[in-house]
Computed example of a mutant assay.
Amino acid sequence: MRRAPVPAALVCGTLLLLSACARSTGAERPPGVPTGVTAEAGSATSVHVMWNRVTGDPPVTAYWVYRGRAKVAEVPGDRHMVDVPRLRPGTSYVFTVRARDADGRLGPASRSVRASTPAAVAADASPPSRPGTLRGKPVGSRAAQLSWGAARDDREVVSYDVYQGDTKIHSVGGQQTATVVTGLRPGTRYRFTVRARDAADNLSPASAAVRLTTAPGADQGAATAPAGFRASTHRADGAYHIDLSWVPPRTDGVVTEYEVHLDGRPATSLVFGGNPPRDRASYSFYVGREPGVEHRVRLRARLPDGTWGALSEERTVTTGADG
């Protein structure tokens, strides 16, 4: 089969999604927009807000979190989550996040996300039970997969808090009993526990701890790679396009950015705005007008901690072979 060089039209283009090509790192530019922002009630009086870390030069040193127009929290640049307390029960709130760099520049606000606190629970002083057996396993060198048994409460478990040592690093909804923690260091031993929280902000005792050691080296782990990766081609208006689809990796946040590798090298990146897909995602891009050209294609995700995940399986396609 004949092989063609990566067409210039592929390196900079927008089709189904926003495709980001050149990324300026000029010192005059403010930080970028935080992506992957989510907000979920942690109790009747608190909301847990998360976002993806913003990379830049100069580096981001802080994140400002807003409830409506009011700034309610300032978070150090090495974190990407915060609990917003002292809220009203049974109330809907809107949150945004902005990044601030080392030179004091404040970037644009993220998209708005909404969360509603549950109704108040009168005279509830009973915490949930201790979560069931916590299990964990390293996923390569930079991630860990955790799962636990559901806690019980006389009313309702609203959320689960995940701790690394004595530090809370993540929170999930009360119906979720598993997560993937990213941003870990290779060859490092970690200790995790989980606590349940009810609407009255009562915290359960910590689960039994699980200890694990990440793999050495630079491997980022198969679980951080897009799953179910498929590739095919189609012809439209006299030109050929490669069509991709995949299932986003499970992480402790939202994946909004991907990098496409064509014939062994990065070719283009894409960023989902609005509500990034949680199930199957798709993307299509131009590769030229000549039939019978073979291409190898892979994909990887930028994880919420700002690092790149593992590459997907490689697929080989030939222009014209799929019609």
Rank of each mutant, 00 (worst) to 15 (best):
M1N: 15
A4F: 08
L10T: 12
V11G: 08
C12E: 14
C21F: 00
C21Y: 03
R23W: 13
A27R: 14
P31L: 00
G32S: 03
V33F: 08
P34N: 06
T35L: 12
G36C: 03
A39M: 02
A44R: 10
S46G: 06
H48T: 06
M50I: 10
V54H: 14
D57G: 13
D57Q: 15
V60W: 04
T61W: 12
Y63D: 00
V65I: 06
R67T: 01
K71I: 01
K71E: 03
E74Y: 12
E74V: 11
P76N: 02
R79E: 11
D83C: 08
D83P: 10
P85M: 04
R88P: 04
T96K: 11
T96M: 07
D101F: 02
S110I: 03
S112Y: 09
S116C: 00
T117F: 05
P118D: 01
D124N: 12
S129F: 01
P131G: 10
G132F: 00
R135H: 15
R135F: 11
R142S: 07
Q145M: 09
L146H: 08
W148A: 05
W148T: 04
A150Q: 14
R152A: 14
D153T: 09
V158G: 10
Y163H: 02
Q164N: 13
V172A: 07
V172M: 12
T177F: 12
T179Y: 12
R185H: 13
T188K: 13
R189L: 06
F192H: 02
T193S: 13
T193C: 11
V194T: 05
R195Q: 15
R195G: 14
D198T: 11
S204V: 01
A206W: 04
S207C: 06
A208I: 02
A208M: 11
A209T: 02
V210L: 05
R211S: 15
R211N: 13
A215W: 07
D219V: 05
A223C: 04
P226H: 05
F229E: 03
R235D: 09
D243W: 06
D252H: 10
Y258G: 02
G264A: 02
R265A: 11
P266Y: 10
G274P: 13
R280F: 02
R280C: 00
S284L: 08
R289I: 03
R289C: 05
G292L: 00
H295S: 08
H295E: 05
R302Y: 09
R302G: 02
L303I: 03
L303N: 05
L303K: 10
D305N: 08
D305F: 02
T307I: 01
W308N: 00
S312H: 07
V317T: 01
T319A: 06
D322S: 15
